[in-house]
Nucleic acid binder design. Structure first.
Length: 439
DNA sequence: TTAGGGTTAG
C-alpha cells in the first residue's frame, strides 16, 4: 500500500517526486531487501483493473533505478505491453544504465537493439552509457565500434561521447591511441572539441598512475587550447601530488593556477588542506588552515568540517571549538553538519568545558541543528557520572536538551489531531506516534 | 549523457 500511495502521489499534476524522495522511499520500503514488491504492486493493478499509465511505470522504474535493481527494472518494462503501454527511450536508458553499471553488457546491448523493435532510436545518452559500459569491461573495440555506428545512424558524437571514450582508452592503457583521439578532438573543434571535463579526466588517469609530469603536460595543453582548469582539475592534481608526497609542488601548482584566475585561492588551498589531512599530515593542514583564516582566504565547507573533525579526533576539542568560532565569525559555517557539531559538543561536555559547551549548544539551537541520538546519550551519560551541575545549568538554560525530540512529538500530536485521532485515546495515539516517527 | 571532497533541506 505504501508503494501504491507513493506511485499515486507521484502522478499528481504539478508534483514530481524528487530524487531525495525516491531515496527515502527505497529506504522506507526496504526495496533492496524486498524486490518482489514490484511484482505484488503490478499484479494488484492488473487484478483490480486499475488504470495504469506510462507515468505509473516510470515511477516504479525510478524506484528500481534508485535501488540499483536491474532485473526488476527489466521486469517492469516487460510487463508494460499487458497494459497496452509502450516504453520510451528515457525508460530504456534507465534500464540500460542499470545493466551497464552491473557490467552486464550483453543485456545492455540486447536492450539497445530491442529499442528498434518498437520504433525507438538510441540517442546520445544511450550511446554515452553504452560506450562507458563497454570501456568499463575492457571491450574497447566494441566501444569504438559504437562511435562508428552512431555516426552511421545520423547521431553525431559530441564532446561527451568523445570524453567517455577517451577516458576509457587511457584507463585501458592505450596511451598513444588516446593521445591520437585527443589530437583529433582538438583539430576537429566544434561539437566535439575537448572541454574541462575531457582534460580533467585525462589528468585524473595520469595522477592515479603517479605520472605527475604527464598530468602537468595535460594542464599545459588544455591552457594552450584555451580551456581553463576548474576546481575539480586543480584538486585532482593536488591529490596526485600529495599522494606522491610532493606537497611543495602542490603549492607551486596553486600559485600558477591562482595567477591564471580561473580558480580562487580559497578553493585551491581548501583542497590542499583536505589532502594533507588525508595523507595524515594534520599539523601542516592546521598550519595552512590558520594561515588562510589569518589572510582572509575563505576555506570551503569540506576543509572546515575535516579540520575540526581532525582536531577532535586528536583530542584537541577545545582548539576545535575555538576554530569553529573563528569560522563562524567569517560566515563559513553553513555547511558544517550535525555529525561535526555533535562530536564537538560531546567532546566539550566530556572535558567539562561547560561554558563552551553551552555556547555551542546555543549555536545549535539557533541554527536548528539536530544533536545525533548517540551523542545525546553520551552527554546524558557524562552528566550522570560527573554530576557537573554547572554544565547541566548551562544546558538547561539554553532550553531543552533535545529540542528535536520534543518538537517532533509536538508535531506528531498536532498531525494526529489533523487526522482525527483523539490525543486522549492513548493506545491509538501511541500507534500514530510510532507510525509518525517511522515516516 | 562525461570528471567530482562532506553535509543540510525536501
Amino acid at each position: 500500500m505504501g508503494i501504491r500511495f507513493f506511485v499515486w502521489a507521484g502522478l499528481q499534476s504539478s508534483y514530481r517526486h524528487s530524487s531525495f524522495m525516491y531515496d527515502r522511499a527505497c529506504e522506507l520500503f526496504k526495496i533492496t531487501r524486498n524486490p518482489s514488491v514490484f511484482n505484488d504492486v503490478i499484479e494488484a493493478y492488473r487484478k483490480e483493473g486499475c488504470i495504469v499509465s506510462v507515468r505509473t511505470m516510470k515511477v516504479l522504474l525510478n524506484l528500481c533505478e534508485k535501488a540499483g535493481l536491474a532485473d526488476e527494472a527489466l521486469w517492469v518494462l516487460r510487463r508494460m505491453p499487458e497494459f497496452n503501454l509502450r516504453a520510451d527511450s528515457v525508460m530504456y536508458n534507465v534500464i540500460i544504465r542499470l545493466f551497464c553499471d552491473k557490467g552486464d553488457m550483453v543485456m545492455a546491448d540486447n536492450l539497445m537493439k530491442d529499442m528498434g523493435l518498437i520504433d525507438l532510436y538510441p540517442n546520445m545518452i544511450t550511446y554515452v552509457l553504452m560506450i562507458k559500459g563497454f570501456c568499463n569491461v575492457g571491450r574497447l573495440d566494441d566501444a569504438c565500434g559504437l562511435l562508428m555506428a552512431m555516426r552511421r545512424h545520423g547521431c553525431t558524437p559530441n564532446s561527451v561521447v568523445y570524453s567517455v571514450l577517451l577516458d576509457g582508452v587511457y584507463r585501458l592503457g592505450s596511451t598513444e591511441r588516446a593521445l591520437g583521439l585527443l589530437d583529433e578532438m582538438e583539430k576537429d573543434g566544434g561539437d566535439c572539441s575537448p572541454n574541462v571535463v575531457t582534460y580533467t579526466s585525462v589528468i585524473q588517469v595520469f595522477c592515479e598512475k603517479g605520472m605527475m609530469i604527464e598530468a602537468l603536460g595535460i594542464l599545459d595543453r588544455m591552457e594552450a587550447y584555451g580551456c581553463a582548469p576548474n576546481r575539480v582539475t586543480v584538486s585532482t592534481l593536488i591529490k596526485g601530488f600529495c599522494a606522491e608526497g610532493k606537497v611543495e609542488e602542490a603549492y607551486m601548482l596553486i600559485d600558477r593556477v591562482v595567477a591564471g584566475g580561473s580558480v580562487s585561492s580559497g578553493e585551491c588551498y581548501s583542497s590542499l588542506v583536505v589532502e594533507l589531512i588525508r595523507i595524515k599530515r594534520p599539523k601542516e593542514a592546521e598550519k595552512l588552515f590558520r594561515e588562510m583564516l589569518a589572510n582572509g582566504v575563505k576555506p570551503d565547507g569540506l576543509a572546515c568540517s575535516l579540520m575540526i573533525k581532525e582536531l577532535c579526533l586528536e583530542g584537541h576539542v577545545l582548539d576545535g571549538f575555538f576554530l569553529y568560532e573563528k569560522i563562524e565569525k567569517i560566515g563559513c559555517l553553513s555547511s558544517i553538519d550535525s555529525d561535526i557539531h555533535s562530536m564537538l559538543l560531546v567532546g566539550l561536555c566530556q572535558e567539562s568545558h561547560s561554558a563552551e559547551a553551552a555556547k555551542l549548544a546555543g549555536f545549535m539551537l539557533g541554527k536548528r541543528i539536530r544533536l545525533k541520538a548517540s551523542s545525546f546519550d553520551k552527554i546524558v551519560e557524562h552528566l550522570k557520572k560527573s554530576g557537573d551541575e554547572d554544565l547541566v545549568k548551562h544546558l538547561t538554560r539554553i532550553g531543552r536538551m533535545c529540542p528535536i525530540t520534543y518538537s517532533s512529538l509536538e508535531r506528531a500530536v498536532s498531525r494526529a489531531a489533523f487526522f482525527g485521532v483523539n490525543p486522549d485515546d492513548k493506545i491509538l495515539l501511541d500507534k500514530f506516534l510510532k507510525i509518525s516517527a517511522a515516516i
